[in-house]
């Protein structure tokens, strides 16, 4: 395992317990960290990039203890924070050069080449002399990932990278991450957008209220949700009754009735047919169902 997290807890000074005894083993490749806002994802990310100290627990990255060997951990780390902005007066190429320098790339010639290559790779070479603040949102994200990748880290931590991007940029960005993940490195992708995980991650964990709700592959998560998603056609009256009891994922008008998709262990009293779940269904299932029961299995 490339990253091992043991009994990690974080309690803020105001008493808020943000992370509760987190245990995770993260292999190389794309790892998705899914969870709603406030689940503790960013806290976990910040601990993993050594910007924050945990209250207790340990983290090991490629054999380095995060708490004791921060310098070494930082050498193998690339990080793209959620809110990635720029010094207004940096050009794209300068920004990347700065990041490369700070990552220990001391050979000027090699660094220059690496910066150029990376700009090519993320499709920003043409705009390298432009001030970074003048880039579009997608370009900024690409520059963000470029700075995280420039020193060829073993671990890349990306926090909510696709938030605010248009669909084309989002796909472009996912592809970029997928492409990078082929280089035997670990990418931790923290997101609340299920689509990001389903299309790129081989492993994932689900974080809710500071606790890990699920760990495994997206396929396993889907499997757990099989038979828990139902499709049925209901009247207005029935729709109201069902939506009071179960999470309704999809609602499509059918004449005077509604075709709806519902997540539930069982749906008695209605003419419902089981439906093959996708990761979004599974996510809703895990978030909204009686998780405790399932976990106790």
């Amino acid at each position: 395992m490339s990253i091992i997290i043991k009994n990690l807890n974080k309690v803020y000074p105001n008493g808020y317990h943000a992370l509760k005894d987190i245990n995770l083993e993260i292999p190389s490749g794309m790892f998705g960290l899914l969870g709603p806002n406030g689940a503790g994802k960013s806290t976990l990310m910040r601990i993993l990039v050594a910007l924050m100290e945990p209250s207790s627990g340990e983290v090991e990255m490629y054999g380095c203890n995060l708490l004791k060997e921060r310098q070494e951990v930082r050498r193998i780390l690339g990080y793209l924070p959620q809110d990635f902005r720029f010094f207004a007066k940096f050009k794209v190429v300068e920004y990347l050069d700065y990041a490369a320098r700070l990552s220990g790339m001391t050979d000027g010639r090699k660094r220059k080449q690496a910066v150029a290559d990376m700009l090519e790779q993320v499709g920003l070479y043409e705009v390298r002399e432009r001030y970074a603040s003048k880039l579009s949102g997608g370009m900024k994200r690409r520059l963000g990932i470029a700075q995280a990748l420039i020193h060829e880290p073993k671990v890349i931590i990306v926090d909510e990278p696709t938030t605010g991007l248009d669909p084309e940029e989002r796909i472009r960005f996912r592809n970029l991450l997928t492409q990078v993940s082929g280089n035997d490195i670990t990418i931790i992708l923290s997101t609340h957008i299920v689509g990001d995980i389903s299309s790129s991650c081989t492993n994932m964990a689900l974080l809710n209220k500071g606790e890990v709700s699920f760990r495994g592959s997206p396929e396993e998560m889907l499997k757990r949700a099989e038979g828990k998603v139902w499709r049925l056609i209901v009247s207005n009256e029935e729709y109201k009754q069902i939506s009071m009891k179960y999470p309704v994922i999809s609602t499509i008008p059918r004449g005077r009735n509604w075709e709806i998709q519902v997540v539930a262990d069982e749906l008695s009293g209605y003419e419902a047919e089981p439906f093959a779940p996708n990761l979004e269904h599974a996510y809703v299932y895990f978030m909204e169902s009686k998780l405790d029961l399932w976990l106790n299995d």
């Binding site: 050594a50 050498r75 793209l80 959620q82």
Partner: peptide, 16 residues
């Protein structure tokens, strides 16, 4: 300036 810009975090996490 550092306080305002989270971007400095990408430098903070560098090995310096």
């Amino acid at each position: 300036r550092d306080k305002q810009l989270d971007t400095s975090e990408v430098f903070y996490v560098r090995p310096l």
